[in-house]
Design a protein around this nucleic acid. Structure first.
Lengths: 198, 198
DNA sequence: ATTTACCTACCTACTAGCAGGTAGATTTGA
DNA sequence: TCAAATCTACCTGCTAGTAGGTAGGTAAAT
């Protein structure tokens, strides 16, 4: 039996929208209460404290990433296409404004001010994503389908950094196409056989 | 005549420390008042509103960047060394924790929630930095001292994104050496003649 | 004499969170 | 089987504390 409507999920969805807009301190229980049409106190019924709410949110965000990238890896076997698809997913999320920036990239920027329970989840996300990218790049380099100039781990960290930085730039310029523009040469440098421009 | 102590500058310095820790909503006038030892209301004498304070802070941050990179360009003539030095300056700022993250990179992450007066200054910083990097890369590509695989503008945006993303990763991992580790291969790819690892 | 730089004392609005209550659904026990 | 007990999901009404900001005063420097 599946629930027809789940208030807890609605609260998490609203909170995510607020967080990607303005970070941990950028929203209040009152803000969430208003958009989903319940009273402020009722949110405490589902999530006793703001820390509980955001901790749950980030943990689920990580779980979704683990599941999503796991499935992606099953459907898309080749490392070059895997990186292209990963970047493409974010390009679409930014272009249609559904998730205009990674929740954990945003929260990482204000990490010293986050409650430790939340900070640890953000760190876990970075570790998972960089580990996943390291595996993909390692495999691609072994097959010769990716060209790397440093250790897979280092290339993975650089790739992840470019993705997150491109999100910041897209936001700063208010231009949703900036992300794709930045990722294109980054992918090109890793994927051999593409035309070099001078 | 130079002032012996300047409270306004002390306020700006304290505000910058708070902002790089937790963003625009991560500090209050009370926080600043406490660390510099004056009353909350006295800050309003120097900066009538929080928007005035942060707007001044970001504008000055941009002015310092313009002056600093201008002087850097006068002292360091070669584009490859210019990029290396730029990355090195940030590596040192992060390693000694003096400025653990770029003020504007952080504020860009919460841009939709920022007062418009602040948002416009953040945008101006991104435009200036990307313009400066574009010039350096264009010059290096023309001289043949830099190898690019896309338009200078695009390479500049990608480089800037990697720098900002590396700041986020350094923060997430709580490891100050992460930044330098990420920037190394990024610089290597732009600077010809460096050893390729496979 | 006016301005500068601070002060005390206050305001309104909002913050997260709590106490206690209620309507309705579900579970349990005799 | 029917009633008591419990649970869920919300409510009203409140709290202490914090937010940014204001009014008006003082002491010193220009």
């Amino acid at each position: 039996m599946s629930k027809l409507s789940n208030t807890a999920d609605d609260i998490l969805a609203a909170a995510r929208t607020f967080i990607v807009a303005g970070g941990y301190n950028g929203f209040s229980y009152a803000d969430i209460a208003e958009v989903i049409g319940i009273r402020k106190a009722s949110i405490h019924h589902h999530f006793p404290s703001k820390v509980d709410l955001v901790q749950t949110l980030v943990r689920r965000y990580l779980e979704d990433a683990v599941a999503g990238l796991g499935e992606l890896e099953r459907n898309v076997p080749e490392p070059p296409e895997l990186l292209r698809t990963y970047a493409g997913i974010w390009a679409r999320c930014i272009e249609d404004a559904s998730i205009p920036i990674c929740v954990c990239a945003l929260l990482a920027s204000e990490l010293p001010a986050l409650p430790p329970e939340v900070a640890v989840e953000v760190r876990a996300y970075f570790q998972f994503l960089s580990g996943w990218l390291t595996g993909v790049i390692e495999r691609g380099a072994g097959q010769g389908t990716l060209t790397i100039s440093a250790a897979p781990r280092v290339e993975a960290e650089a790739f992840m950094a470019t993705v997150h930085g491109a999100m910041l730039s897209a936001r700063a310029y208010g231009d949703t196409l900036t992300f794709g523009m930045i990722l294109a040469p980054t992918l090109q440098k890793l994927i051999p056989g593409t035309i070099e421009v001078d």
